[in-house]
Simulated scan of single mutants.
Amino acid sequence: MKFLEYTPLESLNYFLSNVNLGECTLKGSLEAYSCKHTGPDRKLSLSFEHEILEYLGSSLDSDSSSPTDFLSSRSSRKTLIYLVLTLSHIYPDYDFSVMQAHNFFREEGWDSFKQIFNTYMFEAAKEWAVANGDSPLLESISKSIDEVVNLAECEIYSFNPDFEGDPFLEKGTIWSFNFFFYNRKLKRVISFRCCCLSNLAAEGTLADETFNVDDDGDIFDDMDL
């Protein structure tokens, strides 16, 4: 996988990197990657393939039809591996298991993506409109994605891990979403992730740190050194 720089994404990332909404701050990014393997990716890809095949082998006697039906297709396995490789590039310090990640991916349609976007990004879209006139945020994002990966040909996946398996969560996270737009023909994928952080939680952390420092000072004031 190789990170791809695209001008259409830069202004959006500048806006999404820090949207202060008063009691909370939204942070997001759009990143494009080529699915062509680098040296380390090739080794990791083989490891993921082995993990999947090992799982399929152990599931032969199982009555469950999912997820083995999906993974029995080599094309589907490649898609899953590309998505997890993308995650590994975004979070290089996080050790992803391809089978664990598989449980958290879900294929989405454009309508479901749009519904989630409009629900969570309503306030951010208003901030975007103030700075950019009448151009809707969703329209600007969809045009940029289309320019990079041809949206009409994309498969859309959401990634919704449980709390313990979520590398996206930060202290004070109120909500987060993670989407991937994958074009098989172009062998490119765009990651679009956003999270909303409580400003009160951040202020509380700073207050706690200040309180701890003051406490230490009081303790030392009473000590004979």
Rank of each mutant, 00 (worst) to 15 (best):
M1H: 00
K2C: 05
T7L: 15
P8R: 12
S11M: 10
S11L: 15
Y14D: 06
Y14W: 11
N18H: 15
V19Q: 07
L21P: 12
E23H: 11
K27C: 14
E31P: 02
A32R: 00
Y33N: 03
S34Y: 02
H37P: 09
H37V: 08
H37S: 03
D41Y: 01
K43Q: 05
S45C: 08
S47R: 15
E49G: 06
E51P: 09
E54P: 13
S59L: 04
D63G: 09
P67S: 07
T68P: 02
D69F: 10
D69W: 03
F70D: 01
S73Y: 09
R74P: 07
S75Y: 05
S76Y: 06
R77I: 05
R77M: 03
T79W: 01
T79G: 03
T79D: 04
L80C: 05
L80G: 06
V84M: 03
L87P: 04
S88G: 01
S88W: 04
H89G: 03
D95G: 06
D95F: 14
D95H: 04
S97R: 02
V98F: 02
M99G: 00
Q100H: 07
Q100S: 07
A101W: 06
H102I: 10
F105S: 09
E107I: 11
E107P: 07
E107S: 11
G109I: 08
W110K: 15
S112Q: 11
K114E: 05
I116G: 13
F117L: 10
F117D: 00
N118W: 00
T119Q: 15
M121C: 11
F122N: 09
A124H: 06
K126L: 05
E127H: 10
W128N: 06
V130H: 13
N132H: 13
D134G: 15
L137I: 01
L138D: 00
S140D: 03
I141D: 01
S142G: 09
K143R: 12
S144G: 14
S144H: 05
D146Q: 03
C154P: 04
C154R: 03
I156N: 14
F159A: 10
N160P: 03
N160Q: 13
P161Q: 08
F163P: 11
D166E: 04
E170P: 13
G172K: 11
I174T: 15
W175P: 13
W175I: 12
S176K: 15
F179A: 10
N183F: 01
L186V: 01
K187F: 05
K187P: 00
I190R: 02
S191M: 02
F192S: 04
F192H: 06
F192L: 01
C195E: 14
C196M: 04
D208Q: 05
D208S: 08
E209V: 05
T210L: 13
F211Q: 14
N212M: 12
N212P: 07
V213F: 09
G217Y: 15
D218K: 12
D218P: 11
F220S: 07
D221V: 04
D224P: 11
D224M: 12
L225G: 13
